[in-house]
Every structure is written in structure tokens, then in C-alpha cells.
């Protein structure tokens, strides 16, 4: 059973009538645990819509999303929120750290609504995992470098130990060296057995991924599984 599976997903904005805009057309996808998937496509192709549907954030007009065998969009809004917290970690475009909270508090954000005592310990562990020490954890985002902010964003995504990570242009606002560090971290997360889905328009960001899904005009144009060879810059390509 796939960890993440969408069947016949379509999304129409503005109603089904003649004024409606179809962002996705009958998309089918299966993503396994441990897969590092890049979703690519030009602006307006539907990749962010796909990510929002995969992230249990936007109800499709047609079709279903199954996460770990759970039909997500048949659940209530409340249960969908629970499912997002338990199964999904998000790294947003521009990282989107909350500016008035410290790095530690940003990482604790998904835990703030829980009644548990180890919130701080768990957040510090997540920060340590991405290489942020406790001293830097007490700083607000404006006092951190771009790379450090990216690490904090990833720590926030993994603090709940979710099996799926969604990343929306995670290195778009970073320089190439810093972006590389973030991509390496995402690779590590996939190697730990998490499914990582990254939306990007930058081919350089995809060199470590296991699979590239190209979208154009709301349709999957190409779904390529890559054979990744460690320490080899080139990977052979198999197209499904």
C-alpha cells in the first residue's frame, strides 16, 4: 500500500460551469515511503494546487487522496487537521517562519496545541538534528542567516516526526550554497524512510531526487523514476 495515493484528482476553481478554471485534470499518483519526489512545471501548471491537495489542505473537485490508507477528504475538517499534524510536515516557500517567535518557538508551533510536557525537548532535538544549537534556537528568525532559517523550517516540519514532508520551493529564496544544505537535509529525511514531495521549478534542485513528476496544464506530462547512484553526478532515467 502506497503511503500517499491520489486517484483521479481534478481541481476546478470558480465552479464547474463555463467560468471555472481547471487547475488539475484527473491526476493519479502513488508515492511510497522513502521516496524523494520533485514536482516540476512552469508557473500556472498546477504544481502548487497538487501540493495543496497532497498536503490535505485543499479539497479536490473530483477524486480522492489516501494517506496511509485513510481517505483524507472524507474526513471532517477537524480530523483533517489532526491528520496534517500526524502525517505531514511542511516547508513553505520563503520558509515562512513566524517572525515574532524564536527559532525554538517556531519549531514548537505544531506542538503548541498539544497537551504534552516534552514540547521543548522535542523541539530542541529537532533543531539539533538539523544543526541548530540551543543558543541560536533562542533567536528570532531575523537574527539567523538564510541557511539557519531553512534548517529551522525543516526542524519545524519534522518535530512531529511525520512520515511525509511537503516542501514548496524550499530553496527559492536562498543562495546556492545554502540551498544545497537544505536539499541535502531533505535527502536525508527521505533516506530515513519519509516520503518527501518537493515542488520546484529549478532543475538544479532535483539532482538528488528519486523521481521527477512534470506537470503542464494540470496534467502529469512525465513521471520519471531515477536510479540514483551514490557519489555519481549523473543518474540514469527511466520513464514510466
Amino acid at each position: 500500500m502506497a503511503l500517499l495515493e491520489i486517484n483521479g484528482i481534478s481541481k476546478v476553481y470558480g465552479g464547474q460551469g463555463p467560468g471555472g478554471v481547471t487547475a488539475l485534470h484527473a491526476v493519479d499518483l502513488c508515492i511510497e515511503a522513502g521516496e524523494y519526489v520533485a514536482v516540476m512545471g512552469p508557473s500556472g501548471s498546477g504544481k502548487t494546487t497538487l501540493l495543496s491537495i497532497l498536503g490535505a489542505m485543499s479539497t479536490p473537485s473530483v477524486g480522492s487522496l489516501m494517506i496511509d490508507g485513510i481517505d483524507v477528504y472524507s474526513l471532517s475538517q477537524e480530523r483533517q487537521a489532526d491528520l496534517r499534524r500526524e502525517y505531514l510536515g511542511f516547508v513553505f516557500q520563503g520558509l515562512e517562519l513566524v517572525p515574532y517567535l524564536t527559532a525554538l518557538e517556531n519549531v514548537m508551533l505544531p506542538l503548541a496545541i498539544l497537551k504534552e510536557k516534552r514540547k521543548q525537548e522535542r523541539a530542541l532535538e529537532a533543531l539539533e538534528r538539523v544543526g541548530i544549537d540551543e543558543r541560536k534556537a533562542r533567536r528570532v528568525p531575523a537574527e539567523l542567516s538564510g541557511g539557519e532559517q531553512g534548517r529551522v523550517a525543516i526542524a519545524r516540519a519534522i518535530v512531529n516526526d511525520p512520515p511525509i514532508i511537503m516542501a514548496d520551493e524550499p530553496v527559492g529564496s536562498l543562495d546556492s550554497a545554502t540551498g544545497r544544505q537544505i536539499l541535502d537535509l531533505l535527502r536525508e529525511l527521505a533516506d530515513e524512510g519519509r516520503a518527501v514531495v518537493m515542488v520546484t521549478h529549478n532543475p538544479e534542485s532535483t539532482q538528488d531526487v528519486d523521481r521527477i513528476i512534470r506537470i503542464r496544464d494540470g496534467r502529469v506530462e512525465e513521471d520519471a523514476h531515477l536510479l540514483r547512484v551514490e557519489a555519481h553526478p549523473m543518474a540514469s532515467l527511466h520513464t514510466r
Partner: peptide, 16 residues
């Protein structure tokens, strides 16, 4: 709006 969207994305319910 965006900040609230992030709260919702990381699992906050409407009542939160």
C-alpha cells in the same frame, strides 16, 4: 492570512 494558513497547515483546528 498567510500566517494563519501556516497554523492551519501544521495541524491547528478552526477552534485553535
Amino acid at each position: 492570512q498567510k500566517e494563519i494558513g501556516i497554523f492551519r497547515a501544521v495541524g491547528y483546528k478552526q477552534r485553535h
